[in-house]
Design a protein around this nucleic acid. Structure first.
Length: 269
DNA sequence: AACAATGTTCAGTC
DNA sequence: GGACTGAACATTGT
């Protein structure tokens, strides 16, 4: 689930945990809480509270303050491939996240990989089946490019075309710009009618601007419709799928290390 | 059983 | 040294 639109949604849920006093923390999963040892995060934050939430691309972090009111370490939260944020009220009911429908999918307790208990009885949980999410103190953001949303056209052109690799690989590179994932990249390239394998530095200015406009459009659509999976190309992204514009059967390959689908008729150099 | 999965990182190569 | 590529990572679902 998590690309920029999903993560922004998760951040808004996380914001509902701000200001609540931390009673205890379960950080026993040393894989997720790397590179800390179990208890490190609990010790650092117990008695304190989250004071603000931030997001850049797919990375979130919270400012914290200690029980003395001093500034505490930032709490980094990354959803990985399939993590979700859960925040509950004192009754244990989930809050935030738009849809109030209780999820009926089976959920195992051990899939809650990190938990904060607040003194009011509510919780913050990182739910992550695949265990590729990350919780860390003072996360290093220095390798993250600017957030993919609201980039200036010139900045987008410069950063994307700076490298010689496939344009899709540039879109996925979080140090070039932060927030685009595999689905959003395929959706954007299809909308822009650009071959995912095209060398980034060989794109014309017109193509780069078209790519940028369509990234913004795909982003806005995903935010409005509730996720990158709602993109109108994504549903055709499977064997036997057809381009919703021209009807050509979509092709599948590997670009930028990820499975890639595109319309071979409309997306080529 | 084998493979893919909406992500990141590390080792290896040019 | 930088840029780039592919495998590895842990786990689940098909």
């Amino acid at each position: 689930m998590p690309e920029l639109p999903e993560v922004e949604n998760a951040r808004q849920v996380l914001a509902l945990a701000v200001g609540r006093e931390i009673a205890s923390i379960d950080d026993r999963d040393e894989w997720l809480c790397r590179p800390h040892r179990a208890g490190d995060i609990a010790t650092a934050l117990k008695g304190g509270r989250l004071t603000a939430t931030h997001r850049r691309g797919k990375t979130m972090w919270c400012d914290t303050e200690t029980s003395d009111g001093d500034e505490g370490p930032a709490l980094g939260v990354h959803l990985g491939m399939g993590g979700r944020i859960v925040v509950t009220d004192p009754d244990g009911d989930r809050i935030g996240g738009g849809t109030k429908r209780p999820d009926r999918r089976p959920r195992k307790a051990e899939w809650d990989r990190f938990t904060i208990d607040f003194t009011d009885g509510g919780q913050f949980r990182l739910f992550d089946k695949r265990r590729l999410g990350r919780i860390r103190l003072d996360p290093d953001l220095s390798d993250l490019g600017p957030d993919a949303e609201n980039m200036k056209p010139a900045e987008f052109r410069d950063r994307i075309s700076r490298g010689r690799s496939a344009v899709k690989a540039r879109l996925l590179d979080q140090s070039v710009l932060a927030g685009v994932g595999n689905l959003l990249a395929d959706q954007t390239l299809w909308q822009a009618r650009i071959d995912p394998s095209a060398r980034a530095n060989e794109l014309t200015r017109t193509e780069l601007d078209r790519l940028h406009r369509n990234l913004n459009r795909a982003l806005a659509d995903a935010v409005e419709n509730g996720g990158v999976h709602t993109g109108n190309f994504i549903e055709h992204r499977h064997t036997g799928g057809h381009c919703p514009r021209c009807g050509t059967e979509v092709e599948r390959g590997k670009v930028g290390g990820r499975t890639t689908w595109w319309c071979p008729k409309e997306q080529h150099a």
